[in-house]
Computed example of a mutant assay.
Amino acid sequence: MTSHGEPMWRRLLPVVALLLLAPWAAECSWGGFAGADMLLVVIVLAPMYGGAAVLIREAARRTGGGWPMIVLLAAGFGVVQAGLVDQSLFNPDYLADTEFAELSAADRTRIPVLGVSAQEVVGFLGNHVALTICAPIAVVESYLSPTRRLRPWLRTPGLITVTLLYLLGSLAVFADDSGRKGFLASPGQLAGAAAVVLTLVVVAALPRWRRRPAPASATAPRPRRPAVLVLVVYLGVSMLSGWVGVVVAVVAIAALTALLIRWSGRTGWGQAHVLACAAGALVGAATLAYLVPPYAPASPTEALASDVVVSLLAVVLLTGAYARLRRFGELGAAR
């Protein structure tokens, strides 16, 4: 039993759920892997992706930083993952042996001085923020009661265990040369990525995120509005390419972020709205799965079956989450 009187299995269940959901959302929800490979992908990548999601969620809930802290730390994780671990941000051949080799337009927006593609920066970091970290946390927390949702899930031994899992998982990915193909980023690129990560962590730790301003007099919109906006922006950004696409994507993401910040300060904004944002991202990813190939070659039948499985899993996860919110009386209040 825990200090709150909860059985250990009940306290750890959301941790395990987040450990497994984060890698699925990060790599499978948009069709990156065929159905036969999904379970292995989730198990192999759970320590890294899931470990990061759990640690970021714990940091935000323990300090009271809330969703601003989660988003900023998620962006920091995206830079760590793509800039320091698999180094996909700097490696021009990272997707060379995948089905994306001929589809990628990343080279058209490559910045020689930095050695990065602006299009990949937006795509990689955006997906890590939306799919790897934020959507899984929002979904798992929606299954919990309002009081459990904001409490830490782990004590010190658990935090140490998850931290070790994350470090070992990241080391395993870095050591797997099939991804990096012998590539190593330059010291300047690594230092630049580390500086960006440090900046994001410092900003995320600012005391201002712990202060809760009084809700604005205006009423928050119905949850379906942020869901639709997130869905439209996700799909639009995913389908754009070239420098025009990068500019439009940055403006659209900035506008969406500003609007969500404004709405979240209004009376009535709650977990139903948070879940709606996650639903927009996950439904967008499931839709994108029908439009892009998986990393490895697959027959049309296998690819379609995998995309259907992704859609069904997304529907089941979101339906269950909305059912839980309805049980807690939070869904009707947001309509």
Rank of each mutant, 00 (worst) to 15 (best):
S170L: 04
P223S: 02
L198V: 15
A82K: 10
W269T: 02
S264C: 02
D107W: 13
T132S: 15
R324C: 09
Y166V: 03
W243Q: 05
A303K: 14
L291F: 13
S311Y: 04
W263Y: 06
A255L: 14
A255Y: 03
A276K: 11
D177G: 10
G126T: 12
A17C: 12
G265E: 13
A220G: 07
L154R: 10
G192P: 03
L20E: 05
A281S: 13
Q81V: 00
L184N: 13
W24R: 06
P293M: 06
A314S: 14
V44C: 07
A255K: 02
W269E: 03
L331V: 00
C277E: 05
P221E: 06
P157E: 00
V85R: 00
G31V: 02
V228Q: 13
I253D: 04
Y322I: 01
G5E: 09
P207L: 08
R335G: 09
V283I: 14
A305H: 02
G5P: 04
V232Y: 11
G50A: 07
R222W: 05
L18K: 00
R155W: 11
R335S: 09
M8W: 15
L235I: 14
Y49W: 13
Y94F: 15
H273Y: 09
P207C: 08
A175M: 05
T257N: 04
A218E: 15
M8K: 12
R266E: 14
G158W: 01
A254L: 15
L150M: 05
W67D: 03
G31K: 02
V233S: 04
P294T: 06
L259R: 15
A34R: 11
S145C: 01
T63S: 15
